[in-house]
Write a protein that binds this DNA or RNA. Sequence first.
RNA 1: GCUCCUGUAGUUCAAUGGACAGAACACCAGCCUUCUAAGCUGGAUAUGCAGGUCCGAUUCCUGCCGGGAGCACCA
Length: 583
Amino acid sequence: MSTLDKIKQNIADSINAALKQQIVQSADLVYPPKPEFGDISLPCYNLAKSFKKSPVEMAEFLVGEVALGGTISGTKAIGPFINFTFNKQTLAQGVLSEIALAKNQYGLNDSGGGQKIMVEFAHPNTHKAFHIGHLRNILTGEAVSRILQANGYKIIRANYQGDIGLHIAKCLWGIGQLATEYKEMVGQGVKAKAEFLGRAYALGSKFYEEDEQIKKEIVELNKKIYSQDKSVKRLYQTTRKWSLDYFGGIYKRLNTKFDRLYFESEVFQRGREVVLENLEKQIFKKSDGAVIFEGEKYGLHTRVFINSEGNPTYEAKDMGLAKLQFAEFNPAKIIHLVGPEQVEYFKVIIKALELILPETKGRERHLPYGWVRLKAGKMSSRLGNVVLGEWLLDEAKTEILKIMKGKRSLKNKDEVAEKIALAAVKYSILKSGINTDIAFSLEESISFSGMSGPYLQYTCARIGSIMKKANPKPQTSSAKQIPSLKPQKITYNNLTEPKENGIVNKLARYPEMVRLAAENYDPSELAKYLFELAQGFNDYYHAVPVLKAKTEIKQARLALIMAVKQTLANGLELLGIETVEEM
RNA sequence: GCUCCUGUAGUUCAAUGGACAGAACACCAGCCUUCUAAGCUGGAUAUGCAGGUCCGAUUCCUGCCGGGAGCACCA
């Protein structure tokens, strides 16, 4: 239990004691909109009903009944709310020593109890462009994984990549048209190869839609790919590797590692078999030469699982995938991070899966994440009109190097610029609600001011700078850990500034934010929280000197700002963002 | 046509049915002999429209208007 949890429990207990019944839960307590109101409040609407009073009367009544002392230093009724003021010293003592002792473990909890959750994300298709939509998927998937991990779940990171299907045929057909260029590509780097594949795909796609004859050719080619025909096998394998090598580089740059890479090519056969086996059991049925699942029976819609060519569609492949995933890992839950356009699709396949493999019931979940749209026009890898994921990272880095030119000189400039660039892009994406569409703008994605990744890094760097200049220097047990002072040596009643109380309150809420982010499968809550914490510190920084204060006060303030740095670093870690010591 | 999602300052985004709807960007005016000015302070503007439920609605319900997506052999 965190310090704040304990205090909230105390308050709930005090209220229940005053009312002589167990009626208020600590979860009923809310945070007041203004610090003058108090530190935590209880809305009295529901209580009022039970006690047949008006909410305002109820709040006033409670003020007279609840005993002060311990963690509560004051109560105050404002309208229908009863507001509690914490004993500042108790809170500061509790929170700051908790952080100093827990260090990078601060905020973690064990509510997951070691349950296995597979988070399936990224899933780019080979032979197609890697655009900012994929970037959002990976950043979100990685953050969700880290957040769940912080809540005591054991995470299996899976990535399901489409390396078979019509899009490959389109690309390979396109390569046939660009034969000369293809030969030149062989000696080129992974990036150039990936770009070339993107172009070939767009070309094939265009002709597929515009020319009936070519459409037929591509369909034929697709059959050959499925049957591993000698005429295409080599080209297929070579280009598939180009894509995968390229993706591998991006995962590394984004600091994501997968425990298991799944491929459509390894599940399509199994998927087809699973569907055919269940055809007899009447879960599926034949219709116009295809094998379909009639979703209407369950309030859903019909989908084709095996097409009239006999090839499994995405639906059947997903059956094969699920079977494999449960067989290999037997996770308590599988979360598929996939776009919102597939909400209805997933309802159908989860239902079908439930009938085929009853043990999967309630364990499959589609987690939709919002689109990244271009402000000007739509983005489509089909039309070759895309913002490439890596281009954005490079662009951000270039901009940062420009800014750094006029600033302090750093030895490891390039390394720092890369970290800041990643922070800018990651934060700008993660701060939006997981299911909110993002209207992409270059300026905002690489924003270095305001609610941004670099702002948070800057805050940490500032604190680090104060710590370096502090005398005596705070102790650190290992190079990796953020230094801290021995909590028992600090007198916390030296923290009397209102801004300090605000920061302590904020710090106390961090464990709650970690919990909330996991419950909602949404990193944006945490991203917002970290910004507010940083904002609180920067305000404080300008108003209250740390190093110029008298020794005892200085110690307390140092303890406070180190706790801020630690908490920011912990939270950023969960978002997959690294801090920097200097910038 | 049917189904799902969505509509909040100029822009991009917030707000478990609760206190005065919050930030950021942009714009204007200030702040570096003082711990990193990638910072801080001050300043204007918003819930698409019409009803309903509720002590209370941005949030829930209905209708209308606008935007997006899905709806049999793509992924």
